[in-house]
């Protein structure tokens, strides 16, 4: 349902992505793996229309979304959870959720704050707390919840496990499984192979802006040389 075909991307003169192609099927969880600076976030930003690409195409439900502004892409049902969470620190939890709110969509689960508080019980206890006064893990949950308020049918999750306590990482894995159950397609960027293994169906490895490997997580497990070549251990 989500397809990236041969995109490139530049920051100024520097070429960051080169001919990147992969796809995510409906209800599938795909891990986008790679070291620091490999180009994972840039790939996601390009998909969201935040970084422009001169080549290739990005399609969502068979429709091209390249060149569309971010808000239109989001309104088509593609959710984005950025790295570093980017919570609105001045706004309360409820207000953060309000910003993410979009209309109900026929092809995707419908989320309300109450339903999200069941998924993230921690958040329920701090409805009126400003985002700036929350821990990293809490912010990460809020960031995901905020994106879900847009009722996406596919979601891009940029390093949800980064800088978070192990207990919360486990909870995060559980959340992703829940989303999968709800029928969402998930593209998950990760450096943490262990975490990616828990939740993903397939893995795509980027290195220096190019795709170096695609396959099931199981195959990757059985190929330690690939793992060691492209992923930090």
């Amino acid at each position: 349902m989500l397809e990236v075909q041969g995109i490139n991307a530049f920051y100024g003169q520097a070429k960051i992505l080169d001919d990147v192609s992969f796809s995510v099927g409906a209800g599938e969880v795909v891990a986008l793996l790679g070291r620091n600076g490999a180009g994972k976030s840039t790939t996601m930003k390009t998909m969201m229309g935040m970084v422009s690409s001169t080549k290739g195409d990005v399609t969502f439900n068979g429709e091209t979304i390249k060149k569309l502004p971010s808000h239109v892409i989001c309104q088509k049902g593609l959710g984005y959870v950025p790295e570093e969470r980017r919570i609105f620190t001045e706004l309360t939890v409820m207000e953060n959720l309000e910003v993410g709110k979009q209309d109900k969509r026929p092809d995707a689960p419908f989320w309300t704050p109450d339903k999200l508080f069941k998924l993230f019980p921690n958040l329920a206890e701090m409805r009126n707390r400003p985002g700036g006064q929350m821990s990293g893990g809490e912010q990460q949950m809020l960031s995901i919840a905020r994106t879900l308020m847009g009722n996406p049918s596919a979601i891009l999750l940029d390093e949800p496990s980064e800088g978070i306590a192990p207990v919360i990482v486990e909870q995060m894995a559980f959340t992703i499984m829940e989303l999968k159950k709800e029928g969402l397609a998930v593209l998950l960027s990760e450096q943490n192979l262990h975490f990616a293994k828990l939740v993903s169906d397939r893995a795509v490895i980027v290195e220096k802006g190019s795709i170096r490997y695609q396959g099931t997580v199981k195959e990757l497990e059985e190929n330690p040389e690939i793992r060691d070549a492209y992923l930090a251990v």
Partner: peptide, 9 residues
């Protein structure tokens, strides 16, 4: 940028 990525024009 984030507001935009959350679907707000």
């Amino acid at each position: 940028e984030m507001v935009s990525a959350l679907g707000v024009n």
